[in-house]
Design a protein around this nucleic acid. Structure first.
Lengths: 264, 264
DNA sequence: TGAATTCCCGTAGGGTATACGAGAATTCAA
DNA sequence: TTGAATTCTCGTATACCCTACGGGAATTCA
């Protein structure tokens, strides 16, 4: 995280890169119609760089997708990459929007589950699967997300799932934001958890087990009666991974229960 | 995050540091009873280092709390710090548990709100306030938290608030974990948001405003009917900060509604 | 007075992103 | 065919980060 991002540059340039593979409804009259033909031929293109960045981050971690590492992988000099991408931050934006767009969420008019809860469930599944395919996403800040097609498609889908509840525009939007935050945060934590296991070569259960004598040596029963009660009633029986999955499932269900009850 | 943490070392040593200011119920018979008296006098102690680390991170960001920066602040050589703390990661654990313990959450037997929801609300308030005092917390991974007194006090309090619902041990624990994840994640995002504003010198609203021509230039109404509907119904009217705060409030209330409805 | 103990800390090494500017490749016009 | 215009290529240099290692300094005790 923990990472500083979006060193701004020109927003116009960034948007143009994010939407580079999409029709542009309004013609951009600004550019002096790039003289194609003159000049040295590029040996790469933006998609090559983005694709390789994602692959490298998937396989060897986000740190491996450094400008130097990427350049080596592509067989060019480090500074060559700056021909295709203005900065590391912008590249990360492009990588993120790319994988956000990989989620298979039905667009407008496409077939989808009938129940709104199942539609939310689909969002949840697709988002978690995305984090699982690209664990490094958990290390990327979402405060200023890439404003590209992938991000917008996700927001659109979730909003459309909630529109049928008849909650009113402001409440619908608020609810969508709450659900997205819950789902994305939990998926991110789940991914981060695996990343930590991979980086340390130790499962989280093993990590906790190593600290088992906490309970004998430092834990004070009088200061922790609730934990003690839960403990004696076998409330702690699953692995950390199962506990996280259960709490995610439970929390999402209760959140949706609560939203459903607001239906007029 | 963003950050690799907990490079393990010896768990025993780490626990001893975390619990350094607490009574130890069981005597540790291992240590050969450190010969006090011989040897050079230390010029610092662990608490000095931890306190300075927190202050530096509060005032100038987590990056400023580097070993070098800390040493300069304390007027010693960088390597001197390793006399007091085994590594940067362990220091971070100590800093985190320290501020976790700063939350004013009533312990067992101490006065607290009657209603369980108000008790949860207190957890929420205290946790958010903690993140606001120490924005850098949002950059620290919580996957393997410091297993110290501060962390345990928080878990204990939340569990104790939910015990009165009569849900059964496993469900109580699951619910507590869900609430903690929701609250902590949202508080972390809120802090991270401010950190980004501070680091870039630009409000998040200004950042979005800079990208306003997205809507004219790239946004395709036909592919985003739900967003368009919400837009035309004035569903987007608040600032990003207000939107986040509202969605947090709304989501927490709905989550607690849902949990309350599970009461047997 | 010398041994034992403990703390202090300089150096060295392998990472990071990117500003700058010179050089190489390609096309087009004269 | 030549020279100008254009575009891509990339070496160098900078200022950080953590910490292993090992020698030196301070203090107490026998």
């Amino acid at each position: 995280m923990s990472e500083r991002r979006s060193g701004e540059g020109q927003p116009d340039k960034t948007l143009a890169l994010l939407w580079r593979n999409h029709r542009q409804p309004t013609a951009l009259a600004d550019e002096p119609a790039r003289k194609r033909g003159a000049g040295r031929r590029p040996s790469l293109n933006v998609d090559d760089v983005v694709r390789t960045g994602i692959q490298l981050a998937d396989d060897q971690g986000l740190a491996a997708a450094s400008m130097g590492g990427l350049a080596k992988e592509l067989g060019v000099g480090t500074m060559t990459l700056y021909t295709y991408v203005p900065s590391k931050d912008e590249l990360l934006d492009l990588m993120v929007d790319q994988v956000l767009g990989e989620r298979e969420l039905p667009g407008p008019g496409e077939p989808r589950p009938d129940d709104w809860r199942e539609q939310v469930e689909l969002y949840s599944q697709q988002t978690r699967a995305m984090f699982q395919r690209h664990l490094w996403l958990s290390q990327v800040s979402t405060i200023r997300p890439p404003v590209g097609p992938g991000m917008l498609a996700g927001r659109e889908y979730l909003l459309s799932a909630l529109l049928g509840l008849g909650l009113g525009a402001l409440e619908t939007n608020t609810a969508a934001l709450a659900i997205a935050t819950y789902v994305d945060s939990a998926a991110s934590l789940e991914a981060e958890s695996q990343l930590v296991e991979r980086a340390t070569g130790q499962t989280n259960d093993a990590w906790w087990y190593e600290r088992n004598d906490l309970w004998e040596t430092y834990f004070d029963v009088d200061r922790h009666p609730a934990m003690t009660t839960i403990w004696h009633a076998d409330g702690y029986q699953s692995s950390t991974r199962e506990a996280a999955a259960e709490s995610y499932r439970y929390g999402l269900d209760r959140l949706l229960d609560g939203i459903q009850a607001m239906k007029p």
